[in-house]
């Protein structure tokens, strides 16, 4: 049996974003070391946007029996589509259930529509950049300076977004008075 102190230490570690960030960087390198023979590209160990693209497009290609939609070489060569995203979904669900944090939260149809369109747009801009924020980080770690430009630009986007949120909050506060 583990002592109470060490279990609480582990719990703290599990909840620490720095731990996960470090782990993702390490796993991405392990994944590349293992799977690079299946075809590149580099810095492809973990990416939400690209791996969703590969999963969906690969499935469509498998169903139609020809290459209709582009996928990364690694997914094109593999016997079965890349499953990172399925893993993330199941992992998050198990974690939420085990830790009693699973809670259905519904919203309005309008919000669903906004989030659906948001998802479409986010994936399109992510693929323009060549990956989601995670692959961009991996690319920068791998020595890709275009990815660094992408990260700086993302920070600028976040900065502008924060200004918009603050404006909106001020306006709401003004209306409340």
């Amino acid at each position: 049996m583990m002592s109470k102190e060490s279990t609480s230490k582990i719990k703290k570690l599990i909840r620490n974003p720095i731990f996960l960030g470090t782990l993702i960087g390490f796993f991405a390198a392990v994944s590349q070391a293992l799977l690079f023979s299946a075809g590149g590209p580099e810095a492809y160990g973990f990416c939400v946007a690209c791996h969703i693209r590969d999963l969906i497009n690969d499935c469509i290609n498998l169903i139609t029996g020809k290459t209709v939609l582009a996928v990364a070489p690694i997914s094109k060569n593999a016997v079965f589509p890349i499953l990172t995203i399925l893993g993330v979904m199941i992992g998050a669900f198990i974690s939420a259930k085990l830790n009693k944090e699973f809670k259905i939260k519904t919203s309005s149809i309008k919000m669903y529509l906004i989030y659906f369109l948001g998802g479409v747009l986010v994936l399109i801009v992510a693929l323009l950049l060549g990956g989601c924020p995670y692959r961009t980080a991996l690319r920068f770690g791998n020595g890709d300076m275009i990815a660094f430009i992408g990260i700086l630009s993302m920070a600028l986007g976040v900065f502008v977004g924060v200004k918009i949120i603050l404006k909106r909050m001020e306006k709401q506060m003004g209306e409340d008075k």
């Binding site: 747009l121 323009l128 989601c132 630009s153 976040v158 977004g161």
Partner: peptide, 10 residues
Amino acid sequence: GGFGLGLLGV
């Protein structure tokens, strides 16, 4: 792409 991702994400 980066700017769009940051803005939409926030």
